[in-house]
Design a protein around this nucleic acid. Sequence first.
DNA 1: GAGCACTGC
Length: 735
Amino acid sequence: MAAANNNNSSGSKYASKKQNGRRNVQPFNRDTQIKNPSKIIRFNDPNEDDDVSNRLLKGDVVTYKSLKSRANELLRVRKTLPVYQHKSEIMPYINANPVTVLIGETGSGKSTQIPQFILEQIYDKKKHGSIAVTQPRRVAAINLATRVAQEHGCKLGDQVGYSVRFDNTTTAKTRLKYLTDGMLLRELMMNNNLKEYSVIIIDEAHERTVLTDLILGFLKSLIQGPRPDLKIIVMSATLQAEKFSEFFNNAPILFVEGRKFDVSQYYLKAPTDDIVDAVIRCCIQINQGEQLGDVLCFLPGQEEIDKAVTIMEKIAKYVSDETSVPLLIPYPLYAALPPVQQALVFAPVKGFKRKVIFSTNIAETSVTISGVKFVVDSGLRKVKVWRHQLGLATLLTVPISQASAMQRSGRAGRESEGKSFRLYCEPDYLKLPKQSEPEIARSDVTSPVLMLKRYGINDIVNWTWFENPGKEAIIMGLQELYELGALDTRGNITKRGEQMALLPLQPHLSSVLIKASEVGCLSQVIDIISCLSVENLMLNPSPEERDEVNERRLSLCNAGKKYGDLIMLKELFDIYFYELGKSQDANSERNDWCKGLCISLRGFKNVVRVRDQLRVYCKRLFSSINEENEEARKIGENGDEISKILKCFLTGFIKNTAIGMPDRSYRTVSTGEPISVHPSSMLFLNKSCPGIMYTEYVFTTKGYARNVSRIELSWLQEVVTNGTAVAKQKISSSK
DNA sequence: GAGCACTGC
């Protein structure tokens, strides 16, 4: 309520250029960011007009003639894009250099136009070969391919197509393929030289995902070795051009301006220690002093967002007077939110109201909301940081980088001029790191190391890493793979390792799957692993319905109640897959069931797709698969069968075990640290387990085990097999 | 006895 009382202090808390004459920090001030400007060739944006493109997208295109006429219409729009205007200046650089770095701001048209220019050249010169364009996210690959196919005047899958997991529209005719980073890496694993491509374009390289970084490393070793003819273009929205250029032997950097509206910056005069309170106050101030337009607030996590929404719901009617200032309507937005609630964010509000969206980083890159004119930035985000020595992930709330702050502010200037309110002081902004730490520097690299091994790299430490994760991380990854049986004592990849590298799973889960195929419970384990592979399958119930939902889950899962979350997932899967969906109205039946248990229906649909894919892969990989093993099966309450399944998981997660203490707490087998069962677990209330196994160990306020199962202590010795000498030693010493 | 940001095969 404090926020409401103080709202008439008339905006004086924020300093702006106009008020005190301080320098207004402009987003994307490239002159101060790029060190060596002589190396950069710049193009400005001579044309600011673009409004018909979206209208032209509507309506179905069927005949060849209509495809072509649509493409002709779109050509007028294409010609206004900055990249198109500078085509004749850009293309000679691309043609003359094996690698080009292209910095294109939002709206420059780089992702849609550059690939088409190259495609035209391939046609003109009657050359062979095709173009791959990688994207970090699936939706981006799909949307870009759809748009470019229209511009090109073809059906999706003819000359232009996309390839993402579960969905491949490419055909033998396809010459321009948009695909996810993960898909290109998979192709690299299957066909070492990417020989079908003559040009590879890495888009959104500035995001620095683990997979993008890996691809850059592979491309460098390709052009230095078997593919000197391969042309590479690294495309990035902002900055970091020097690093890409240096990595590829000082490749030229081209800079194309984009189209965006000005966003003015406002900073706090004094720092705040209650970020939720500050965000609410700021929203109220915007509501009273600014023209109509929606507000997007960036907060670090679900906890802060839920709190902010609750407060605003309570005070909105007190701080709004419908005759003078609009009513504030709060919306939460984060990935774990049920899809139906996420969708509310996109619907415009009617009447004299102002939408206020409280969001995590999801709105920074993955999701774009129209109507946003104001951004409120807490300057914080949550990151998962992997601790190699401890084998656990920590979840930290940390300050964002300058690049991230600019990206957040930019969200206010997508449709018109906007304002950005940063809830920190300007000197503190200037002290922030220019870029966020790349993901690979804070991740578990077991999976990347396995990819490199499968590719045939011996000296992992000295590989052409775009960003070397460090010797320590690599050694931990190698040791992990050795303990999983993927590497032999000399560090060479084993047959098991080859199989693990080809499965679309993290190495630990691949190892579990292979074990299951050996002992004859493959089908059940596939179902469980499919559930584990889908993010946000089990949603968090709201505090009011929490007890009810937990009660319902417990009453449905008899075996899960005793044996834990992995078995519960299988029980739920069995109900979803075998029992529901037989009636006429299968969809609504499944929908109601999911709602009652606070489970994501979309999640379960993905589980089934993952399951189908894994069954196909397993058939291909395991030649000795027997009939009984292959047959899909429901789980019963048979203790022997359940033990067999859990022991399979123990081969992959032997390190993730803890022993029950006399005081009913748990301590980890590997380090003896205290660990608690996460409140979302079936075993949260069950204090009678001799030991537990978990698939995830996260440290927040304390160490939590997630996806927890009951194990017998005798299993620990029993399960230790090939290559797990280290784990074995640790188990004996901790006993 | 109390809660996890985002993405990919």
